[in-house]
Design a protein around this nucleic acid. Structure first.
Lengths: 247, 247
DNA sequence: CGATCACTTGACTTACGTCAAAATCTGTGG
DNA sequence: CCACAGATTTTGACGTAAGTCAAGTGATCG
């Protein structure tokens, strides 16, 4: 596998420029890529947790069921993301993970992370930075879910997806494919499916978001960011150069 | 400063037994303890982020303001907690942090963390484990805030506080001091202050929680856990031994 | 002993949920 | 190319948890 094809290297390079050795170390995390079908489970709550996955292609999501049968989707994973970081401290899975589309994942055991710790301070720092960025993302979503209106939640989510996709796919230009049903959107946003439908209608009337099946068009990104009170800071802008760590 | 007084060592020991050298390394993180008054800001959003704090004593909380003036409290910090992990990847603070009570904090620069990365794989693992446990906590709160009723939110929060306090203070036995106003509770739980008041009345009528000023009494912990749909897993039970890392 | 602050209680409003029916899309086989 | 079945999505009527406003009741403190 060439380094250029590795989306994990692409992901890491975002934080810090990497030496050849570090790249080689990372490439080993993406051995044995496995095809996986849309709708398939990667793992379930309670499964033993001793590995991470990198998502080479496709979308996935993690979720939990509540006692009343509601489902909360916790995270949407996009190509290049690492799945399962959350459970490094635990012996069991704390959440279910399921593929949204067909995709390819690579498994690597937690032990490999310890090797990284041993071999490269820069990569360790990047892993830590990724975890902390992840945390920032979750926090932002927490604020949105706890406090904001359906309109703001939806705008915020769509803007976030666009922003995250832009990172790897530079010329989206306000258009992207969102392979999620409204029921799934409801489970992400903490709304009912019918209210998601109404909210999309509203956003469309306002000219903020047009949607045809799974194709989303955002004519004015700034307007949508404003509608969702989206705070740029937490995603990219201030990602720390970490040059001290890498130098 | 003796090692026995160090609450950071106590905190870390929870994850993994530490060698003498590692303890010494940790103790250096708690140099220069600083008194800090109730209500004082540790930092504000936008401040440059180049250090963590350990909280030796007292309570603190992090928060953000929304555009409509609402405030969301993101995290309550208890003695032994590390504040500011979230911002390791960022150059600026993403949230405000304020003391709830008088307390003592110790500052240590991000660079020290890189030293830890360099010097000790076990400590690096523990740092990572702490970050991942933190993430688990935030995720659980996200689910609660997004999906559950005021009664469940309140029960969940109180149970969580009790559980976290029990970790360092073994014989609480259902009684503890909660130095938070109902307005602050509202800002944590995503409710209005008046609804917090009503919810406490309800919990009290149900015999689940009694409260006199800032003193909370929980006669039946299991009943409260059930009311809040509290899932033990995510806090302690499954914290990974990490022996492989330490051995 | 007022003055200020935190909490409680009640009346009314609102955003979102629920239920159920209608409309639309998707795919399959004839 | 059409017909039909099963999902999704939309629309409408109605219910409810929690918000808002405002007045009242305690605490705490100079």
């Amino acid at each position: 596998m060439s380094e250029d094809q590795s989306c994990i290297i692409h992901h890491f390079s975002h934080y810090c420029s990497l030496s050849k050795e570090e790249k080689e170390l990372l490439v080993t995390l993406e051995e044995s890529p496995t095809d996986i079908k849309s709708g398939a489970l990667l793992w379930e709550i309670g499964d033993s947790a001793n590995e991470f996955c990198t998502l080479k292609s496709g979308w996935a999501y993690s979720y939990r069921h509540l006692e009343n049968g509601d489902r909360q989707i916790l995270e949407i994973y996009l190509p290049g993301d690492i799945i399962g970081l959350r459970e490094f401290a635990f012996s069991q899975r704390l959440e279910n993970v399921r593929m949204i589309t067909n995709g390819v994942v690579c498994h690597f055991p937690h032990k490999r992370l310890l090797e990284i710790f041993r071999l490269s301070v820069p990569l360790t720092s990047v892993m830590f930075a990724i975890a902390s960025r992840h945390q920032a993302l979750t926090t932002e979503r927490l604020i949105t879910l706890a406090r904001r209106s359906a309109r703001q939640k939806t705008a915020h989510f769509l803007y976030e997806m666009h922003a995250r996709l832009s990172q790897t796919n530079s010329h989206l230009d306000g258009k992207f494919k969102l392979p999620l049903s409204q029921e799934q959107l409801a489970d992400i946003l903490g709304l009912s499916p019918v209210h998601v439908s109404r909210t999309f209608s509203l956003l469309s009337e306002e000219g903020l978001v047009y949607r045809d099946r799974h194709n989303v068009t955002i004519p004015n990104l700034e307007a949508l960011a404003a509608a969702g009170e989206f705070d740029e800071c937490y995603l990219n802008d201030n990602v720390r150069p970490l040059f001290e760590a890498c130098a």
